[in-house]
Simulated assay, not measured.
Amino acid sequence: MHYPPKVALSTLVNSLKGVSARLLRKEYPAHIRKYLWGGHFWSPSYFAASCGGAPLWIIKEYIESQKRPG
């Protein structure tokens, strides 16, 4: 994902969560209720990582090479 460097990551994530929650609630109101997180669609936390512009095949290879929990 690319976004302007002046936009704080937390602002971007909050916007994505807010818009997606509104759209999902609008499209699937009855179904969504059982998945709410204390009345909210999303948890207040988030995770973000950067791959420094590496090609997707390298990222995929890296992920696939990671150990699985036992």
Rank of each mutant, 00 (worst) to 15 (best):
S65H: 05
W37H: 14
V19S: 06
G53V: 07
S20H: 04
P69F: 05
V19C: 01
C51M: 12
C51A: 10
G70M: 05
H2W: 12
P44D: 14
K6Q: 14
C51W: 15
L36E: 15
E64N: 14
F47H: 12
A21C: 01
A8Y: 09
A54M: 07
E61G: 07
G39F: 05
M1V: 12
P29G: 02
H40N: 14
W57D: 09
R33Q: 13
R22N: 05
R33T: 08
L24F: 03
A48P: 02
R68T: 03
L36H: 11
Y3D: 06
L16W: 03
K34L: 08
H31W: 02
T11I: 12
F47A: 12
A48K: 06
A30S: 08
S10L: 08
L12S: 00
P5S: 15
F47V: 15
N14A: 12
G39M: 03
G52Y: 05
L12P: 00
I58W: 02
R33H: 07
K26M: 07
K67Y: 05
L12H: 03
N14M: 07
S45M: 11
I59Q: 01
P29T: 02
R33C: 02
H40F: 12
A21Y: 02
K34W: 04
C51L: 12
P44W: 10
I63V: 14
G18N: 11
I58K: 11
L24V: 12
V13E: 00
V7Y: 09
S15Q: 10
Y28R: 10
A21M: 03
K17G: 03
I32G: 00
Y35I: 01
R68C: 01
A49C: 13
L16S: 03
P5A: 14
S50D: 13
G38Y: 14
K6V: 13
H40G: 08
Y28P: 00
S43D: 13
P44V: 11
R33E: 14
G38E: 14
L23Q: 07
